[in-house]
Design a protein around this nucleic acid. Structure first.
Length: 994
DNA sequence: CCTCTGCCTAGAGGA
């Protein structure tokens, strides 16, 4: 889009538009009337509805629509919410987590479900029965726990509505009798103006409930409560239509918001079938139903509102005018000042926070005069440092969320064909539904899909991944979402939220991997919470933002209960000195402790011991980490001791051996059916384990813990790490900032400091830090590398055995013999490796008797790993573990082979290798043997690697390229001219026989 | 220049 001309008097905008990236084939688009006010800018993507006559589109009051950023789908409720206050609508999109539910909302949800399930034919008895089953089923128990309400209280409220269900049915279902017929006025856009508008409405069938529709045509999305087959009886005749019904359980307001929702649904429905032209608002409190016409004016105004919203949601940053081109946050839609609306607004906190922390730093910001004092008062508990922290993190999170905007996201589901998307592994197309759909539980349906012809393509889809199911044809876009249950051969099973068995058998489906940026949502929620005026938030602000010195008490005797002493002593027996010191430090802490777990120092053992000790002392513990795997690693160890715990999180992501500790399983085995029983379960568990992002669970709205332990804390970004800390009085972060930091994709966000973990940030308070320095993984030679590189000699071996451990190769002598017979020299392998005709070699390690599963191959690059895997004998694939450095963090193997890949003359090492933390991880994974392959002269361009190579050279650990190396490393401080040629040779020999 | 894990969500009602 290119803006050509703007006329001040008659707001009219002329746009040059093109459907192709090159500008050769352009059309003209004229925006008349107030369409000209749409904030469309050159380069924007738009969608036009209407007619194009001789290369010119004209969008006016009476015809045509312009959709700005049509790939941004906004929900019906978001748009109708923006009518009163657009600022609120934008904030609700950004701070999704911040809206807490109420009892009326829960009742509303339950009533929706009951009404939708009853269909058009029911008795009061059946209704009562269904209501009872719904309320006493497992589905809403957690929400009732959160709201602290009893089931019978909900049942009472629900019962009041049930007679109205019948009243509605009498008036509108199945040819109502003459006396019951309700007359209403309905003028459809297609109706003749002279027509008699009075009619009776007859709902004949519920064709669908909770129909999910995505409409990239209008930039809308939403769920239709009921898609109904309707007959409109008029004097002139009967018309049949498929129309949306919108259910409301609150006051019969017939408000503009309610009506707008229906108007938007009439647009959404066009994605699936012909324009319904109108829909109905059905108030379940009274049983009254009102028609809502989707007329041109309402649709036009709502789409204009959508465009405005889309603009605010996407244009959330701007480049500063200063020469350094720093990105700055943009302002939100202006503050309204409606004391009544603002008083009850669920986004009030975020609204004033953004105004104070971000907008008040800008020039030319208008604040309604009566809002000034309100903002002042609502943020008076925040210091300047807090506001700065908020606005910096808000900016970094915004930048990071923009990173994948074009690559990822929903839009690929409609912008790319399935076969196109299959190449990246994010989609599987050409699937048909096979076998019967199985209703696993309320609202969860197990489906099987099979490739229609040909074999399955390679896919990234894995157990537990979220998927979007669509028809290969555009009309069935996003019909359902769910999780992958199983991928086997050419079949995929999914647990979906809707039953697709009603659709025609021959429909071709595609399953798209659903990515998203949930991390950003959770982060913003936590950031907002950190700024709340509560004692927990205030404490965290002072500790985290203002670096208040963590406090410790003097004597253990005051925290250690007498009866726990023996148990604690027993647990301590199994620990080494620094580990014991860590236990003591945590017990003495009043605020927090940081445990630095250097490679192989027994972090898991230490955390387990800590949990057991805290448990013995009668403390409650919240145990978390960023990934499910890390949480389960701890739990697998913990389960061996007789310590019980509650594991929260999605079942499919949890280790099979831990399943019996999940909420789902416990509720099943104990057949928990009431809120009281659930409450009892939660209260009986002093140890709760989940991921950092799993703290959205209802349990945390009511429960607090004495301690929170966060494992792998150095890999978690600050706002995510913050999540669990709100629910505990003291916390323990375990990590090692010398290993990999949190992943940040956006370079600007990284430069602003986004990859600094909370662990790293708090490490400046030395009195809170304990270091685990005794390691049990690497032998002394391997350990020396990392000691030299990062740990300044602090690392030590746990025992002589660890220090001297080498690989055991039972057939070594046989192999030696065999090699000599075969090639008459022990350097065959070396020659082959150097032979120009063998560009890539795999060192076959089978012969000497080493288990393939003891070997790990690592590299910074996925493509390198792909090549290595492809060259490996197929019997090794899957047993010799080939993975990235990043994926190997926290793990080890007896033998590790590192491929550094880079080899060039201009010293170009790339970003990945230049992170010394990644290098540290790479060299600290091996227990007995570490083999590194790389071009020494290339690697020497990077000082830490040069340092490492220098050390290797001094210690005679470099093989067969030492002649070259001397030229580059020779200048190093401790490098002698010709370093142990015999030693180097010996090492080659060792490699060969491996 | 290529390293990747988290999460159920659109709408439940109030004024």
């Amino acid at each position: 889009v290119k803006v050509l001309q703007e006329n001040g008097d008659d707001p009219e905008k002329h746009l040059t538009i093109t459907a192709s990236q090159s500008l050769d084939d352009t059309d003209l688009c004229i925006l008349k009337n107030d369409w000209g006010s749409i904030p469309v800018q050159p380069g924007d993507i738009i969608h036009l509805e209407g007619e194009c006559k001789s290369g010119t589109w004209i969008i006016t009051r009476d015809s045509g629509y312009l959709i700005l950023y049509p790939d941004l789908l906004l929900s019906g409720t978001t748009i109708s919410n923006s009518i009163r206050c657009m600022r609120k609508a934008v904030l609700s999109e950004k701070f999704r987590k911040c809206e807490s539910g109420t009892c009326q909302m829960l009742i509303g949800t339950i009533l929706h479900e009951i009404f939708q399930k009853t269909g058009t034919n029911f008795t009061q008895e059946e209704l009562q029965e269904l209501a009872f089953r719904t309320i006493h089923g497992p589905k809403y128990l957690k929400e009732m726990y959160q709201l602290n309400v009893k089931q019978h209280e909900i049942m009472q409220d629900i019962e009041e509505y049930l007679p109205s269900f019948s009243k509605w049915a009498e008036g509108f279902v199945h040819r109502p009798t003459q006396t019951n017929r309700i007359k209403m006025q309905l003028k459809l856009p297609s109706d003749d103006s002279k027509e008699d508008l009075s009619c009776n409405i007859e709902v004949t069938e519920f064709l669908d409930i909770e129909e999910n529709i995505w409409s990239p045509r209008f930039g809308l999305k939403g769920k239709i409560d009921v898609t109904a087959a309707v007959k409109i009886h008029r004097r002139s005749g009967t018309q049949q239509k498929i129309m949306p019904l919108e259910l409301k359980t609150g006051k019969e307001s017939n408000s503009i918001e309610h009506r707008s929702q229906v108007v938007l649904y009439t647009l959404l429905c066009q994605e699936r079938r012909v324009d319904p032209e109108a829909g109905f608002l059905l108030y379940l409190k009274t049983g009254n139903m009102y028609p809502v016409c989707g007329n041109r004016m309402d649709r036009r105004e709502l789409l204009k509102l959508r465009n405005q919203l889309a603009f605010y949601l996407l244009q959330n940053v701007c480049k500063s005018s200063r020469e350094n081109e720093q990105t700055q946050l943009a302002s939100l839609p202006p503050l309204i000042s409606d004391s009544q609306a603002c008083k009850y607004c669920s986004q009030k906190h975020n609204c004033v926070l953004y105004s104070r922390a971000v907008e008040q730093q800008m020039e030319n910001i208008f604040i309604p005069p009566d809002m000034g004092p309100v903002i002042e008062k609502e943020t008076e508990h925040l210091k300047a440092s807090h506001l700065e922290y908020f606005s910096l993190w808000y900016l970094m999170l915004t930048l990071e969320s923009q990173y994948g905007k074009n690559k990822k996201g929903y839009r690929n589901i409609w912008m790319m064909s399935a076969s196109e998307r299959e190449k990246a592994g994010d989609c599987v197309g050409n699937m048909i539904r096979v076998e019967r759909v199985q209703e696993v539980s309320d609202g969860q349906y197990l489906h099987w899909f099979q490739r229609k012809n040909g074999t399955m393509v390679g896919t990234n889809l894995m157990l537990g991944d979220r998927v979007v199911v669509s028809g290969e044809e555009r009309t069935l876009l996003g019909i359902s979402t769910g999780y992958v249950k199983e991928v086997s051969g050419n079949k995929i099973s999914c647990l979906l939220d809707r039953n697709l068995s009603k659709l025609p058998k021959n429909i071709l489906f595609r399953l798209d991997h659903e990515e998203g940026h949930f991390g950003v949502d959770a982060s913003l929620g936590n950031l907002s919470k950190l700024m709340e005026d509560s004692s927990a938030s205030e404490r965290l602000r002072s500790l985290i933002i203002d670096f208040c010195k963590p406090q410790f008490i003097q004597h253990l005797s005051s925290v250690l209960p007498h009866e726990a002493k023996e148990t604690v002593a027993n647990i301590l027996k199994g620990l080494n000195k620094p580990q014991k010191q860590a236990m003591k430090q945590v017990l003495l802490s009043k605020d927090y402790t940081l445990i630095v777990g250097m490679p192989g120092t027994g972090k898991t053992t230490t955390i387990c011991a800590l949990v057991r000790i805290l448990y013995a002392c009668g403390f409650s513990v919240l145990l978390t980490s960023f990934t499910h795997t890390a949480v389960d690693n701890l739990l697998l160890k913990l389960a061996r001791f007789k310590v019980g715990f509650l594991r929260l999180g999605r079942a499919q992501k949890i280790h099979p051996d831990i399943q019996k500790f999940t909420e789902e399983e416990i509720c099943r085995s104990k057949s928990i059916k009431t809120v009281a029983q659930l409450e009892e379960l939660y209260d009986s568990q002093p140890i709760v384990a989940t991921t950092c992002m799993g703290v959205n669970h209802p349990v945390f709205t009511r429960k607090r813990f004495d301690f929170c332990i966060v494992d792998e804390a150095s890999q978690i970004s600050q706002p995510v790490c913050l999540g669990p800390l709100f629910y505990s009085h003291r916390f323990v972060l375990v990590g090692d900032h010398q290993q990999l930091p949190p992943l940040v994709q956006n370079a600007e966000a990284r430069d602003l400091g986004m990859s600094e973990s909370l662990f790293k940030r708090l490490e400046r308070n030395k009195n809170a830090v304990v270091q685990l320095t005794v390691q049990y993984r690497m032998n002394s030679k391997i350990m020396s590398l990392s000691n030299k590189l990062v740990y300044e000699g602090k690392l030590e071996c746990g025992s002589e055995k660890v220090s001297q451990a080498t690989i055991n190769l039972p057939y070594l002598e046989d192999v030696k013999l065999e090699l000599e017979l075969l090639a008459n020299t022990s350097e065959t392998w070396l020659k082959e490796t150097l032979d120009p005709n063998n560009p890539v070699c795999f060192l076959n390690t089978e012969k000497a008797g080493c288990k393939p599963s003891d070997i790990g191959i690592i590299s910074p690059y996925r493509h390198q790993l792909k090549i290595i895997t492809d060259l490996m004998p197929s019997s090794y694939v899957g047993t010799v573990e080939v993975n990235t450095v990043d994926k190997y963090q926290g793990r080890d193997k007896s033998i590790i082979i590192v491929s550094f890949v880079r080899n060039n003359n201009d010293g170009n090492l790339g970003e990945l290798l230049k992170d010394w933390r990644r290098l540290n991880v790479a060299i600290t994974r091996a227990k007995h043997k570490l083999i590194m392959l790389g071009c020494a002269p290339s690697l020497c361009h990077y000082p830490p690697l040069e340092n490492l190579l220098c050390h290797l050279n001094t210690e005679a650990m470099i093989s067969f390229l030492d002649m070259l190396l001397l030229d580059f490393v020779g200048a190093g401080p401790s490098s002698p001219g010709a370093a142990h040629p015999s030693g180097a040779h010996e090492h080659v020999y060792q490699c060969n026989l491996l």
